Computed example of a mutant assay.
Amino acid sequence: MQDTKTLIEARMKLYFDGLYHSDTERLGQVFAPGARYVCATGGEVINLGLDEYFPLVDRREPPAARGEPRRDEIVSITMAGDRAALVVAHCAIGERHFTDLLSFIDTAAGWRIIAKVFHYDLIPAPQPQE
């Protein structure tokens, strides 16, 4: 049997693939029903359910379609008992460089994200030298 961190890493691959391809079918395999999407950047906190978040993903042009290089990584996985974990991850879409704090729980359907809290910084792409 695979160890817990390996199972979570497999979910994170689906998560990163879902973001890169703007694919809510993949993301739906990672998020638990009732999960929250919370942005902590800027003045007012954005707190959405999946029924509000997934349409945003569906409308966005996928980074893959723009030929963006993949820029995603798991920074850490911290276990809290046998059924909860916190994953810190980095990824980038366009000029937004995200730090994701992903709370995972072990459900009957496997490890799922129950809350995504994130911050992003705007980092412009390097300009060509003249």
Rank of each mutant, 00 (worst) to 15 (best):
D3Q: 07
K5I: 11
K5T: 09
T6G: 13
T6D: 01
T6A: 13
L7Q: 10
L7D: 01
L7V: 05
L7I: 08
L7F: 11
I8K: 06
I8W: 04
A10K: 10
A10T: 05
A10E: 05
R11T: 01
R11K: 12
M12V: 14
K13C: 04
K13H: 11
L14R: 11
Y15C: 00
D17H: 12
G18A: 03
G18M: 04
H21S: 04
H21K: 14
D23I: 00
T24P: 01
R26Y: 08
R26A: 04
L27C: 05
L27Q: 04
Q29H: 08
Q29S: 05
Q29L: 08
V30A: 06
V30K: 03
V30P: 14
F31R: 12
F31N: 07
P33T: 00
P33V: 00
G34F: 02
G34P: 09
Y37N: 13
Y37G: 13
V38K: 15
V38M: 10
C39F: 01
C39S: 12
A40T: 12
A40K: 06
G42F: 11
G42N: 08
E44L: 14
E44P: 12
V45W: 08
V45Y: 12
I46E: 06
I46N: 02
I46G: 06
N47H: 14
N47V: 08
L48V: 01
G49D: 01
G49Q: 06
L50G: 10
L50S: 02
E52T: 12
Y53M: 00
F54C: 07
P55S: 01
P55N: 00
L56M: 09
L56R: 15
V57I: 12
D58A: 08
D58M: 02
E61D: 03
A64I: 15
A64K: 14
A65I: 07
G67S: 01
E68T: 12
E68W: 11
E68L: 07
E68C: 09
P69H: 03
P69V: 07
P69W: 06
R70C: 01
R70Y: 11
R70K: 09
R70L: 05
R71Y: 08
D72K: 10
D72I: 09
E73T: 14
I74M: 11
V75C: 04
S76E: 04
D82R: 02
D82F: 02
D82T: 07
R83I: 10
R83F: 13
A85C: 11
L86Q: 07
L86A: 05
L86V: 12
V87I: 08
V88D: 05
V88G: 04
A89G: 10
A89N: 10
H90V: 02
C91R: 10
C91I: 10
I93Y: 09
I93V: 13
I93T: 10
G94I: 10
E95A: 11
R96Q: 14
H97M: 07
F98V: 14
T99E: 09
T99M: 11
T99L: 13
D100R: 00
D100Q: 02
F104D: 06
I105R: 10
I105Y: 15
D106K: 13
D106H: 06
D106A: 05
T107W: 09
A108L: 03
A109Y: 15
A109R: 14
